[in-house]
Computed example of a mutant assay.
Amino acid sequence: MHYAIVAGAATVEPVPRTDRFADVDGGTVLALFGPTAVGKSDVAIALVEALAAHGQQGVVIGADSMQLYAGLGVVSGAPTADQLSRAEHRLVGCIPIDQQFSAGEYGAMAHAEIDRVIEAGGSPIVVGGTGLYLQAALTELPLRPPVSPETEDALRLRLETEGAEALHRDLAEQSQAAAKRINVADERRLLRALALLREGHSVDDQAGGLWTARMRHPTRLIGLIRERDELYARIGDRVERIAASGGADEVAAALEAGASRTARMALGFRELQSGDLEAMKQATRRYAKRQLTWLGKLEPVELFALDEVDVDQVAETILRGDSARDA
């Protein structure tokens, strides 16, 4: 079934479907976002195959900060060999494991790939669970200045010794606005904001307003969700599958290869290193909750529930143009 977020309400309501199959504009970007384990890759591939059935090209462009790394395919839940064979993917497994990488660098690469697909008459399908990377792919992301490794190391030591809550209080004392934007559990953004402040930079929203009003191309934002119990069960299955597929060995190999600081921030990296799968499941559930919070702030967004529905049906509904009402 097709759903929409209703403005001013916490409920999700069905949207009437039509039998019309809309022509897909090759200049329009389809951007899929949703929590870990919701099934984004499956929907993306179904979209590519549905487009191909109508003589059109769809190309999947990754917007996941960890799936970009070569050597983290298992840990990050990157598309499998079978999935890669069914649809063209770009910006997946393309960054060396020992390389530091930022959203700004990713944005430049994503813009180039999106533009190439559109120039060739195709439809870019941007897929990811990293909100900042999705924004970087779709907009001209305001770039923050780099900070020194010494500052980063000092703050990470504080995080390990004092805890995230102490650092979040520190952030609130320096910028109430930043503290409201950044969840105490979002260690990466918390450390980044404090590093910028320590080196004398602003952490205010430089552009202001909704970033979705500044997208580079006509874009449909597609949000994918499941009922919480089903999503959490899928997260548990995913963690077990990562472990059974050699996730711990992949982490060990990454460390042996000199994994960069940003690569080591992959969800589950530390837990796989220590063998604590229950902690990994808990961390993944917390991350999924933050992703859903971020999704709830997207405007406008078309929301699709994947519970008890075939992904081919979802893809057909999206391409038919039965748009959900805006959030």
Rank of each mutant, 00 (worst) to 15 (best):
Y133Q: 03
G208L: 05
A185Y: 13
G200T: 03
W211L: 05
T219S: 06
E199Y: 08
T139N: 01
E187K: 15
I182F: 11
G129R: 09
L197P: 05
A178D: 12
R226K: 08
R158S: 14
E187V: 05
A178C: 10
T212L: 03
A136W: 03
G200I: 07
L224Q: 07
E199I: 00
L171A: 04
P142D: 08
R158E: 15
L134K: 01
R169T: 12
Q176K: 02
A213H: 14
Q174M: 08
E199S: 07
R169Y: 01
K180R: 13
G131Q: 07
E199N: 13
G223K: 09
R188L: 11
E187Q: 15
A213I: 00
L132E: 02
P146D: 13
P218N: 06
L134Q: 08
A164P: 06
T161Q: 12
M215R: 07
Y133P: 04
L159P: 01
T219E: 03
L194H: 08
T151G: 04
L134N: 06
E150R: 10
L167F: 07
T139A: 15
R181E: 14
I225C: 09
E152R: 10
R144G: 07
E152F: 02
L194Q: 10
H217T: 02
G129V: 09
L210Q: 11
E162V: 02
I222V: 08
M215A: 02
E140H: 14
A136E: 01
L155R: 10
T139V: 05
L191K: 10
L196Y: 12
P142I: 07
G128M: 08
H168T: 05
K180N: 04
L194G: 12
A166N: 04
G209K: 05
L141W: 04
L210F: 08
Q135T: 06
T219Y: 00
Q176A: 15
H201L: 08
P124L: 09
A137G: 10
R156F: 11
E152C: 10
Q176L: 14
T139W: 01
Y133T: 06
G128R: 12
G129P: 07
P142W: 03
E162L: 15
V147T: 15
A136V: 03
Q135K: 06
L167R: 06
A136D: 09
E173Y: 04
T219W: 10
H217L: 07
G128Y: 05
L221R: 09
A193L: 06
P142H: 13
A185N: 08
E152T: 15
R144V: 05
A136F: 06
E173N: 15
E187N: 14
P142V: 07
I125Y: 13
L191N: 08
L138N: 14
L143V: 14
R216L: 09
A178H: 14
R144Y: 07
E150P: 01
A166R: 14
Q206S: 13
G131P: 00
G209M: 06
G209R: 11
R158V: 04
L194F: 10
D170M: 07
T161C: 05
